[in-house]
């Protein structure tokens, strides 16, 4: 009986899965799309990106000296990520403590984590669209977006760090005659700060990618010239910009993981 039930259960699950795929694929309306033709078109474009990159976008020398437009925009992207991450990393600290079970109690922690999850669920680009309306086009909107959005993830990770705090140390601090702020500075902060910093650096990696995206909706950084180039079908420039993003993201990942290994 149980074997039969298990088998029929598996069968039902399999049928449901097949139905789901049929629904998903048939509904996608790809029938009108000539895949071969599209592929040829795209392949031609990729060829241009690789073989005719617009190197002058990377480095151009004129009468007024040499400029790197790509470099400037990439630098702006990194600066956005740096400021945005810092804001988020600092604002996440109170959230982290308030969402920790050993600080806020079970109920407070649940409420805090709910808020943090809500922030995380909000797609970053959508948040950027709203902030753009409020503070206008430019990198500032991007910085705010990353600052707010980072709170969601960092707050949650911080809360887990706080929940792992060794509280016996506080007893020792009290026994030394330390007051509350001294006990926190000597007993708690050394325990949590390295891990907070490590998570913030990790978030910086994510925010560099986010900063590259946010420009595409007008929030500053390398995304803005990228989306212009896409709209102008400027494939040579797109090739150079993509190369720039790949190199910088890879470099940031490498530096960040080195720093994190050193910290904890």
């Amino acid at each position: 009986m149980s074997a039969l039930a298990r088998r029929s259960g598996t069968l039902v699950a399999a049928l449901a899965l097949v139905a789901l795929y049929v629904w998903a694929i048939v509904g996608l309306e790809l029938r009108g799309v000539n895949l071969a033709e599209r592929w040829h078109q795209a392949a031609a474009i990729f060829r241009i990106m690789v073989t005719e990159p617009e190197w002058t976008y990377l480095w151009k020398c004129g009468s007024a000296g040499c400029v790197s437009e790509l470099g400037q925009k990439i630098l702006e992207t990194l600066q956005m990520a740096l400021v945005g991450t810092t804001i988020g990393a600092v604002l996440a600290v109170p959230f982290g403590f308030l969402a920790a079970r050993n600080v806020a109690g079970v109920r407070g922690s649940r409420a805090g984590k709910f808020i943090l999850n809500a922030i995380r669920a909000f797609p970053e680009v959508v948040l950027a669209l709203m902030l753009l309306k409020a503070v206008g086009l430019g990198p500032f909107a991007g910085v705010l977006t990353m600052g707010i959005h980072s709170i969601g993830m960092l707050g949650k990770l911080y809360a887990e760090v706080v929940e792992g705090i060794d509280r016996d140390v506080l007893e020792a601090m009290a026994a030394c005659g330390a007051n509350r702020s001294q006990a926190i500075a000597f007993g708690i902060l050394p325990q949590v700060l390295p891990e907070f910093a490590s998570f913030a650096i990790y978030r910086f990696e994510i925010n560099v990618r986010a900063a590259a995206i946010l420009g595409m909706v007008g929030a500053g950084g390398i995304g803005t010239p990228l989306i212009f180039a896409v709209n102008n079908r400027d494939w040579g420039r797109i090739g150079v910009i993509l190369l720039g993003i790949i190199v910088v993201v890879a470099a940031v990942d490498a530096v960040s993981s080195y720093l994190r290994r050193k910290l904890v």
Partner: peptide, 10 residues
């Protein structure tokens, strides 16, 4: 204390 109660990272 029994468990020393030192701040390990300091």
């Amino acid at each position: 204390f029994q468990n020393f109660n030192l701040v390990n990272r300091s």
